[in-house]
């Protein structure tokens, strides 16, 4: 059992000890008696923040929630919990981040020509070697969304984030379905162009995924 990081030195300026690390002690005790109880407690503790994190990458709540739920199911079914000797949080976050990243890669494979996609998928995009690539990706997505005109952004997020159909959005915003369709397509293209200029590494993944 390693030394918890909060005892590691004076560089922490926040009241970190009552944060997630501390509450994991309680969860770890639960795992000693009942793995299901442990999993349930972990789920209660991490489900919401993990969904919130995943959605930064995939921009769709349904996809984010699927990824997180699936990670938890495998966590129990594969007995992963038994292999973790220190903290559960880092494992869960790492797995969810990788899955969110790969989700975009798979979208690429499905919808762009294979020769181009292969080059991306087999090199850096599959397992980003640097942790900072993850943050780079969702920051760029965020910034790109930010540059859209308000109405376009609103329609696009209703479509992408809430998973609403064009017809639903049209009814809700009192627009014609055709307008909604045009705005969604325009947003997808604008985002692709913005990201293309900035983000060459996972260019294919992002562009094809945003137009999907």
């Amino acid at each position: 059992m390693g030394v918890p990081p909060e005892q590691d030195g004076p560089r922490l300026d926040g009241p970190h000890t009552d944060g997630p690390v501390d509450s994991e002690r309680f969860i770890r005790k639960a795992f000693e008696t009942d793995a299901r109880l442990g999993c349930e407690l972990l789920f209660r503790h991490y489900y919401k923040p993990l969904c919130n994190h995943a959605v930064r990458f995939v921009l769709s709540r349904a996809v984010a929630e699927d990824i997180v739920a699936d990670v938890f199911c495998q966590f129990y079914a594969n007995g992963t919990f038994a292999k973790i000797t220190q903290f559960y949080g880092p494992f869960l976050y790492k797995t969810v981040r990788l899955r969110a990243y790969n989700y975009m890669r798979d979208e690429t494979k499905r919808s762009t020509d294979l020769s181009a996609a292969d080059g991306v998928a087999s090199s850096d995009a599959q397992h980003p070697d640097a942790v900072t690539h993850y943050e780079d990706l969702y920051h760029d997505v965020e910034r790109a969304i930010d540059t859209l005109p308000p109405q376009t952004r609103r329609v696009y997020l209703m479509h992408r984030f809430d998973g609403k159909t064009h017809a639903d959005i049209a009814t809700e915003l009192k627009l014609s379905p055709r307008t909604v369709e045009v705005l969604v397509r325009r947003a997808s293209h604008a985002l692709r162009d913005l990201l293309r200029a900035k983000w060459s590494l996972v260019l294919l993944a992002v562009s094809s995924w945003l137009t999907a």
Partner: peptide
Amino acid sequence: EPLFYACLHERELAQVQYEPDLSAAL
């Protein structure tokens, strides 16, 4: 690593983007 992800966790708790339905998912 634990510190990195503990801070990330803290940030996601503080900067909520949307409220997932925990009880149904649970």
